[in-house]
Design a protein around this nucleic acid. Structure first.
Lengths: 185, 185
DNA sequence: TCCTTCTATGCAACTCGTTGCATAGACAAG
DNA sequence: CTTGTCTATGCAACGAGTTGCATAGAAGGA
């Protein structure tokens, strides 16, 4: 149910259309939440009919018109209420770990390629996060006196960076283990 | 769709009933996958009718009879096929990060308690993982020459431990940030 | 000229995951 | 003696998430 709230937060940071939200969910929001455009349009429709958000039709040239959404008082109140409710620490779902334990009943060496692919993907993601951090928070273009919103965005991004670094270290450990098992054959 | 495969791996490691699987998913499998007993019973039923697993009725005294499942050839083949298919690196869903960014539009100080609760929960989980590692892999009772399956279980557990440590460090960072914002009020 | 990509929104069908409820005997604690 | 917990399985309903498809104009490249 947190997709609602992720959308509200994003719209508070910057009003926008469903399409724009979908792109943000591929970028900065993607650090901590994912959603397809289908999910987003459906939730926007529901929140609009519940009076949580307002719509404004924005005509455009050379591209389709869009509906720009912004957060209404009811939405702000709903977000605030959710912020004050405790939530459970997330439960993990890690496909790769299933594969690693499954490899005991198959060929561990066959997993090496796959793990290397994941290593590359996480390495790319880390580079992307670091570039974003430099651009928005630590580089020369960054605000010298960040406001609360920027401080909080930065600490979330630092979480993403820490996660990717930890994952890369762990994947190195996994690769070393798989290679050891393969050479012992 | 990886619940199927997580169950197959668990049944290969040790045949068992739906109830026993549900408990494993609260314990060791819970390091990397979660599922309720409802999900598990439904998937077991489907896999049985697809011939992936075999059932054996086991009568018991002083407790209800149980159905012990074990992996059939078809299930082993399905697992093996899945192991050879590439999978996408997981997408993240982190409620707490939504809350942290949302706090910019509410009261950051009000989140401190919540973050402390999460810190405690992750700290408990870390202690639990470390106890399991000592018991099964690094303590005096552990096998001196672990087989491939144990090596792979250990590397997955090391991933869980690294994740919890990283998360605790990050939550410290989050708390420091929230406290700074609260004192600047 | 045709093919693809980008912007922008949406329906329909499906699978996956969660929640509430139900049964039922055995055992332990208050 | 009642209440709660543990073992063990399951139905029904709902909500969340995924996949495939559809529309439609504009721009850019082969």
């Amino acid at each position: 149910m947190a997709l609602d709230h992720a959308i509200l937060v994003s719209l508070l940071e910057q009003p926008g259309s469903g399409y724009e939200l979908a792109r943000r969910f591929d970028r900065s929001i993607g650090y901590f939440w994912t959603a397809t455009h289908q999910q987003i349009y459906r939730v926007l429709k529901r929140m609009e009919s519940d009076g949580w958000i307002d719509v404004r039709e924005v005509p455009q040239q050379a591209r389709p018109d869009k509906k720009e959404y912004s957060v209404a008082d009811l939405g702000r109140a709903a977000l605030s209420q959710w912020l004050h409710e405790p939530i459970e620490p997330e439960s993990v779902r890690h496909d790769l770990a299933v594969k690693i334990r499954g490899a005991a009943f198959d060929d561990p060496a066959a997993l090496i390629r796959e793990v290397e692919r994941h290593h590359q993907a996480h390495s790319d993601r880390l580079a992307h996060y670091l570039a974003g951090e430099l651009r928005d928070f630590t580089g020369p273009e960054a605000p010298s006196a960040p406001d609360a919103g920027q401080e909080l965005q930065h600490v979330v991004l630092r979480g993403g960076i820490a996660y990717e670094r930890m994952t890369l270290d762990w994947l190195d450990d996994v690769l070393a283990t798989l290679r050891r098992l393969a050479s012992d054959h």
